[in-house]
């Protein structure tokens, strides 16, 4: 389940590789996914990928990312790896923690922004 920006070169500075762990289609999973999708579209449009892992189908994958609570969002890239648990209803928290600050950066860092834009 990759985003539409899969063509983008995977640059750790510029590309958000996100993994959302859920357990089936329960309300929390659905809320979490829609919250995440909304935030990504808002801040990272075109520069992210979300993989949704259903642990009911792939229980063995829980160990790898040290999943305890569900839903859990794991930011694999950019490094360092970050985790956030819950249905992501607290947007500010997600933005700060996952550093979804592209619009702010766009203004602050010309070099990055320029590069980014050419790639986009």
């Amino acid at each position: 389940m990759t985003s539409e920006a899969s063509v983008l070169k995977e640059n750790s500075e510029l590309f958000w590789d996100l993994r959302l762990y859920v357990a089936g289609q329960n309300p929390k999973s659905i809320t979490a996914f829609s919250n995440l999708k909304r935030l990504c579209e808002e801040y990272l449009k075109g520069h992210y990928k979300i993989e949704v892992v259903d642990l009911f189908k792939h229980p063995e994958r829980a160990k790898g990312d040290q999943i305890i609570a569900l839903p859990t969002l794991v930011r694999k890239l950019p490094e360092p790896i970050k985790r956030i648990v819950g249905d992501l209803s607290n947007s500010d928290r997600v933005i700060v923690e996952m550093n979804l600050q592209r619009p702010a950066r766009r203004g602050g860092n010309k070099d990055l922004t320029g590069k980014d834009l050419t790639h986009a």
């Binding site: 809320t31 829980a62 607290n90």
Partner: peptide, 28 residues
């Protein structure tokens, strides 16, 4: 042997969650 790493500095919370992940790991 399943080592469950729980590190406050690596886990942030936002909204509702449960420990289903732990259940799934155990069941597996």
């Amino acid at each position: 042997i399943d080592f469950v790493k729980v590190d406050r500095s690596e886990i942030e919370e936002s909204g509702e969650y449960d420990l289903e992940g732990l259940f799934i790991r155990l069941a597996h």
